[in-house]
Design a protein around this nucleic acid. Structure first.
Lengths: 245, 245
DNA sequence: TCAAAAGTGTTACTGATACACCCATGG
DNA sequence: CCATGGGTGTATCAGTAACACTTTTGA
């Protein structure tokens, strides 16, 4: 940071790219946009855009998320999560010019109708893993985002960001099962969640029929806890030689 | 990422900032440089510099680290760790111009003599937490880096990056105790480390006197494991309401 | 012979897993 | 009355914490 020279640096474009996840019909979905022009015309890409002169990357990401989904920003408010992932800066990641992209992961509850964004050609929720190769280095960004979300499910209450304001423990469990692609014991899951203070809060008298069959389930709200002690570990997915981050 | 217009974006300067840690004499130290000019002239700052036109942020960080410490780059080679932290992009973080900085955390073994860098006014290892407020938002970057390193010590074999190529378990334990600012039971520490396959590898016949007193200790090398199962948890530092990341 | 640090053993406790079992509802 | 999912109880097991104990060195 010594010796600033206004002309010593190459001008970079700085963008944000968003990996926006939701759980719909028991499957993990990602919000993607179809590119209308070269390069990668016709291919799917992550939504994103330029960081404006008076914005931080976080502000730009919140704005883009709102434009694409119609959801309010709010990095902390009711069910909605936006988190910086990392920055991708390989010199050749965009063939046209030097673009440094700050990637974000976002988690939203199910049914935000795809609100055709201001500049988006076509935006759609697609099941995670289904579309072929994405544009640019977006396959890698998406994979990194997925890893991060999976990992954070273990030691944070992040899963509630995928749920509506009021949810049953069965619904919360299905979110975990969907994201982790694993089966969890309902009894033990219940105990762990309820045994962690601040993870969820019971809604006194309420109960919800769970789609016909079965006993009506009690309703819960997301609690104030951000980190879970002890963590909620996923079953056998843990490899003794897995990568750390 | 739709509608690129070469002139629609504000030119940003992109820099890297490095939080370089080492453990020396039982204390955690950080490499800092003294600023020679305004703003923040005379204050300490994190080392860093511009990302050059043909570099990724990772390459630039490795180059800066080598310039400041004289150590080779090598994100994976023997004892030396360089990892992207996150990106800081508040519009007013540098009063002169728009600068987006990609921050990195680096861990190096003890005695790299401070190699006065090409542009560094004065670089010094200072105990973590001692210097007053740093320039720019570097206090926050340094705190974020420290949090990250502490957390990664729990579930990765990262601590060996602070050790020389051959080390005793007592030395490795002191690294943990220094970084966590906590005391660990030598017996249990030993069992956990040796019980985790791939964390450390015994060097057959070797032993080292541990500075006079005590039984000579067996020597070990860093093993190939990057993630630890089960994790090595720090004692009572865990707060039930701590922040996640 | 004493202090210090390495290294071994043992016990008590906590949390996870697995599974059996009861409850309430719709078909 | 049966299938389905909510909810409770409980035995077993693995991993941790705490601490007693032996070994080997320098002073």
């Amino acid at each position: 940071m010594q010796g600033y020279d206004k002309y010593a640096f190459e001008p970079f474009a700085v963008t944000v790219d968003l990996a926006v996840f939701t759980v719909r019909a028991g499957r993990l979905h990602v919000l993607l946009v179809e590119r209308g022009q070269e390069p990668y015309a016709g291919q799917w890409a992550l939504p994103g855009g330029f960081v404006l002169p008076d914005e931080s990357a976080e502000t730009a990401a919140g704005r883009e998320l709102a434009e694409e989904t119609g959801l309010a920003d709010s990095t902390g408010s009711a069910g909605l999560h936006l988190e910086q992932l990392r920055t991708y800066s390989e010199p050749d990641r965009d063939p046209r010019m030097r673009v440094v992209s700050v990637a974000f992961a976002a988690l939203v509850p199910d049914p935000p109708a795809v609100h055709a964004g201001s500049d988006a050609a076509r935006a759609e929720w697609l099941p995670y893993g289904t579309p072929g190769p994405l544009a640019f280095d977006h396959d890698r960004i998406l994979a990194d985002a997925h890893d991060r979300v999976c990992a954070k499910f273990e030691y944070t209450g992040l899963a509630t960001a995928f749920c509506p304001p009021e949810f049953t423990l069965g619904e919360l469990r299905q979110v975990y099962e969907t994201v982790w692609a694993a089966e969890l014991d309902p009894a033990n899951f219940r105990r762990k969640v309820l045994g962690t203070t601040g993870f969820v809060e019971a809604i006194p008298g309420a109960a919800r029929l769970t789609g016909g069959r079965g006993k009506p389930a009690a309703l819960y709200r997301a609690g104030p806890a951000t980190s879970l002690h002890p963590p909620l570990l996923r079953p056998t997915t843990v490899s003794p030689e897995g990568k750390p981050s």
